[in-house]
Amino acid sequence: MDTFLQVLVNGIMLGGLFTIVAIGLTLIFGIVKVINFAHGEFLMVGMYLAYLLTVGLGVHPYVTVVALAPALFVLGALAQRFIIQPLLAARDEHVQIFATVGLSTALINLALMVFGADIVNTPSSGLRTPLEIGPVRVLIGQICILVTAVVAVIGLQLFLGRTNTGRAIRAVAQNRTAAQLMGINANRMHILTFGIGTACVGVAAALVAPLYPTSPNIGTYFVLTAFVVVVLGGLGSIPGALLGAMVIGVVDAMSGFYIGSDLREAVVFGMFLVILILRPSGLLGSRSTLSHVSP
């Protein structure tokens, strides 16, 4: 029973990790409707920045978030403005996908050029200290990730629901033309949304870097999982991303323990496929977001 609890808690912690990484993608993929394969690489860039700042300035890794979030915001906004936006007019949405794949390849190799293939480690500054809560152990850093993830979910949900900017973003997401007629600058909203999405990745990077080794390829692992989370939760649903991440985290941990580590990817992706086909709106998505399924 204790073991089961531990596996469950591991899964929830993993879910927190996936939430914090995927929440930015919910905005980008779920609202701007851009499939951004470079999402993982934004995380990678953020983690390297966190490493450089932490080591260079000798500050606590969490402090770097004040620099990371704005830096990643700019990076994302630039990507949207100069890569994605010119392609919105392209007749073929596939072209966007290729552009972001190219961006991803370029960023991975840029990191390889600058940092080498070696892993780097951001100092953990005590975040790796395990806490014993009853029969289970968790790391302080993991708890911080989980808490931040939940706060970010609530914050974003309030932002989208209660502020004018947030409503404008949702309006653009639902009907670009209609929103433009209402006087909303759709392009600016997209740049803003993309920027906020990548700024979330900046926050994630500051939280993740002290716990996981950074390498040029770290993003590739996260990006597929993040897509799974977003689709599972329901396109554009912020609470859905949290739920999806928790489901994936727990399934990942459970299958890793009870089925076998070599098959857990098959279980996660298999579950993703089944949900995509049987319940394309995701766990919390509404039917109105089903632009991806033919009638």
Partner: peptide, 8 residues
């Protein structure tokens, strides 16, 4: 490429 080995 695993990021979590807690199950193992």
């Amino acid at each position: 490429s695993i990021v979590d080995m807690s199950s193992i």
